[in-house]
Amino acid sequence: MGGKVTCTLGEVKNRADLIVYWGGNPAECHPRHFTKYTLTQKGKFVPKGRKDRTMILVDIRETPSAKAADIFLQVRPSKDFEVLTTLRALIKGQRVSAETVAETGLTLEQLQDFAERMKKARFGVLFFGMGLSMTRGKHMNSAALLSLAAELNAFTKFVAMPMRGHGNVTGGDVVMRWTTGYPFGVNLSRGYPRFNPGEFSTVDLLLRGDNDAALILGADPGATMPQPAIDHLARIPTIVLDPKVTHTSRLARVHITTAATGISAPGTVYRMDEIPLPLRPALKSPYPTDEDVVRRIYKAVAKKPAWFPGTK
């Protein structure tokens, strides 16, 4: 299946009586998720807040988030897909063998209880983190979880939401969708957007050595990418826009210092549930904003003889 059955965070705050976190550790990575948006908030239809809600945490290790959970399910590494598939079978009343389930590190009883709780919830939500989407199975795991959430709507109200990472990564998806039709990894070399993850995604491009120049902004791939990808960034002319010296700027030919987003640069950012929020900078930076610098580079390129697909 494709698609996603989701909502904004306020729906969870006002309605959710069953909250599942899967492969995420909000206590450490999204510290106010429990308190501002989900678990402990009193909501319109869950007036007693925490007392009205049940929280289940699924992860491969007992993180600090487990303390907040009513039920912690420790799944064996790389077995998330199996657990999700079993749950999808259980909610539909299909038969599942206890031996197969045992391989996941959980018992059939645990999963039956989990499935029943989901079906009986008035409003359930599955939050999933990188522990699900970036481990063995990757997007297949996400798809299985999204399918589970969609299928639960045959019984009750259920939604799913990814625990998006830092900064305005959500805004990047949103902006690329309206400007190019695709959420990331968009190749514009033919003058129109093309999308093929695995071919046009950055790590793959850099590992193959396809790029012969790079502009990096709002990220430090020199600290996060596989070494061969970083090596290629060091080989080619790399330009970095960043408020600070970073791992990437140390290997760059050009570094331009910019104002820090939200601290001294104004604009818009998107929350993980794709709600746009304005920034209110508290400081005045001596440096220009990223927006301003990219526009200046655009103008400098635009002054050169125009290039159109098929002419180079």
Binding site: L205, G267, D290, K312
Partner: peptide, 24 residues
């Protein structure tokens, strides 16, 4: 920056996490 990007055959613009939508 403009010179490098203009002369490249397949330049990469990457990151976009910690910047505004306007910059994106």
């Amino acid at each position: 920056a403009a010179e490098y990007l203009y002369n490249a055959h397949l330049p990469l613009v990457y990151g976009l996490s910690n910047v505004t939508c306007e910059a994106q």
